[in-house]
């Protein structure tokens, strides 16, 4: 086994500083803010997620929904075209249905609020997929297919017959780096931080710009919050 080093240690100081979780938090409740005004539906966050986590073809942990008639197509509201994007990955619900229903505790909630899975324990019953109101879980139905067989990313692949989803890039959190999708959003539409720290950028944004929960009525208490689009100033 060649002597390898953590990709984080190999970053240049500038890059490393860019990705550092600021401010670091001792007992965090990690959350994310998505600014739908800034989101341009580019899928960079979804693609880098696939790359970072070695997600096979046909499976996506993160996807970008178009609020419109079709992919990147507007709806026409009384003679007026409108369109916006809603990136969607695991919401890391504080009251997570998937955790409740998992018969073997393979899906569990970590102290830092991350809803995590234990691929070695999962029996593949897919009850969590039934329970998740956000449709963000995906199952390893068969042998994974990859582009020309290319294995990518920084974590182990999950076994056939088990379920997987966004892990909030826990492997990066371990090293004080923001999740990959947050790093790679070119529009600055994804902000990561500690929801329990009232002064963190995420907390402030949620306060100042009325961050919303997706399907709040389901009572799942998501830790991903969405900032609504700004009001337009017609000519």
């Amino acid at each position: 086994m060649p002597d390898r080093r953590s990709p984080v240690d190999l970053l240049s100081p500038a890059s490393r500083a860019y990705g550092a979780i600021e401010p670091p938090s001792s007992s965090p409740r990690w959350g994310m803010v998505v600014d739908t005004e800034r989101c341009i539906g580019c899928w960079s966050c979804a693609v880098v997620c696939k790359s970072e986590n070695n997600v096979p073809l046909g499976m996506w942990w993160n996807r970008i929904l178009t609020e419109g008639e079709g992919l990147d197509l507007p709806t026409t509201e009384h003679g007026r075209e409108e369109m916006s994007w809603t990136p969607l990955a695991c919401q890391h619900c504080d009251n997570a249905p998937c955790v409740k229903v998992c018969p073997v505790q393979a899906t569990y909630r970590r102290e830092d609020g991350v809803v995590m899975m234990d691929s070695a324990r999962c029996i593949g019953c897919r009850y969590c997929m039934i329970a998740c109101p956000y449709g963000v879980r995906t199952f390893n139905w068969g042998a994974p297919a990859r582009p020309n067989g290319l294995e990518t990313g920084m974590v182990e692949a999950r076994p056939v017959g088990t379920v997987e989803k966004c892990t909030l890039c826990v492997h990066r959190l371990e090293e004080g780096q923001v999740p990959s999708c947050v790093w790679s959003c070119p529009a600055g539409a994804r902000i990561f931080g500690d929801l329990d720290d009232p002064d963190s950028r995420v907390s402030r944004l949620v306060r100042d710009r009325q961050g919303e929960m997706l399907l709040e009525e389901k009572g799942t208490l998501p830790k991903v919050r969405y900032l609504p689009p700004r009001r337009r100033r017609e000519l």
Binding site: K100, C102, I123, Y127
Partner: peptide, 22 residues
Amino acid sequence: DIGRPERLWHLFRYPNLTSPMI
């Protein structure tokens, strides 16, 4: 039905009492 039948015993080893399936 399940993806990992060989792990069915996990149901008895790690039961999650909040799961209707259990």
